[in-house]
Nucleic acid binder design. Structure first.
Ligand code: SF4
Ligand code: SF4
Lengths: 155, 155
DNA sequence: CTAAGATGGACTAGTTCGGTCGGATATCCT
DNA sequence: AGGATATCCGACCGAACTAGTCCATCTTAG
């Protein structure tokens, strides 16, 4: 069904939270888990993967926690997905992995790979910063004549 | 991993084949399965789903088989995917299904839905006809009346 | 030292996916 | 008419993947 995993959802939720509260110091996994009702151990695992993917930095010890490793605007949702779920591919095959039974007779491979590249480009076009600046519901200083919906921007 | 299922792969393979050989009549499921080394019963199921999705027409009986229900240019890969794997969604939630535990506190829903729409647009932008007209590389020196490549005849 | 927090691996329950089987029905050919 | 070939449909099974859990270790502030 082309769905992205729950872990990825959790990762995006956490990363967005960290981006929105970047001024505060490190945020602990437990605090994050309680805020969004996520099983703490599972969230911890996801966060660790993000650290290994160089998207987050961790601070151990009693006042430890997680924080973004780089600016939210320089971090795309494609980065997050790949850090959590591994390299994303739409087909079972790839340039390296020819293990599909139909590989020799397949003639839809190239167009599908092109579609994959387009999807990755779509994912890479949305930065975490854009996620964080959504939902400004209690945002008083909204000048008149602003169309909040469907604001697609290209940084 | 955002991968599309094997059944979808089979469906695209079959649909592309039917589009490329549209001049011939109906093609049986077994012939298709043998051509691409696909388990026959499984391919049959996939083809049936495509029939239910109004993408193919089936002809029963001894000379039966499957054929495209409409022009290949009016059939996108998004149509094929949705016919086989159901409505494609990138998140577990949707406008109808709010059953996610984080739904009330989730603030990445809307941006993700926008990404989903863009992915669907990407998938809808590629028609089956485009798949079929790939790979015509060794076609130039072909006298009239000769079937193009992939003319597999069973003894 | 100790409490809070990160890290890592192993493990389990549940679900999905790829694949199989058996039977029913429709159509053509002799 | 009768048999051969084909689609159709539902139920079934084993393997693989997913979400979630448990535990044991390491690190650092106080
Ligand atoms: S069928 Fe073709 S595109 Fe799909 S996995 Fe196999 S080789 Fe790749
Ligand atoms: S976390 Fe948000 S986006 Fe993901 S499924 Fe739940 S409600 Fe939808």
């Amino acid at each position: 069904m082309l769905r992205l995993s729950k872990k990825t959802d959790y990762a995006l939720l956490a990363v967005r939270h960290l981006a929105a509260n970047a001024d505060r110091g490190a945020v602990s996994a437990r605090e994050l888990a309680e805020t969004y009702d996520i099983p703490p151990e599972l969230l911890a695992k996801v966060l660790q993967k993000l650290v290994r993917g160089r998207l987050l930095e961790s601070q151990q010890g009693i006042r430890g926690g997680y924080a973004l490793a780089r600016a939210a605007s320089a971090m795309s949702v494609a980065d997050v997905i790949q850090a959590v779920d591994g390299p994303l591919m739409v087909t079972a095959c790839s340039e390296e992995d020819h293990s599909c039974d139909q590989y020799s007779k397949c003639n839809i491979r190239d167009p599908l790979w092109r579609i994959k590249d387009r999807i990755i480009a779509t994912l890479a076009a949305t930065s975490v910063a854009e996620l964080a600046m959504e939902m400004p519901a209690p945002l008083p200083p909204l000048p008149s004549g602003v169309m909040p919906m469907q604001m697609v921007k290209r940084p």
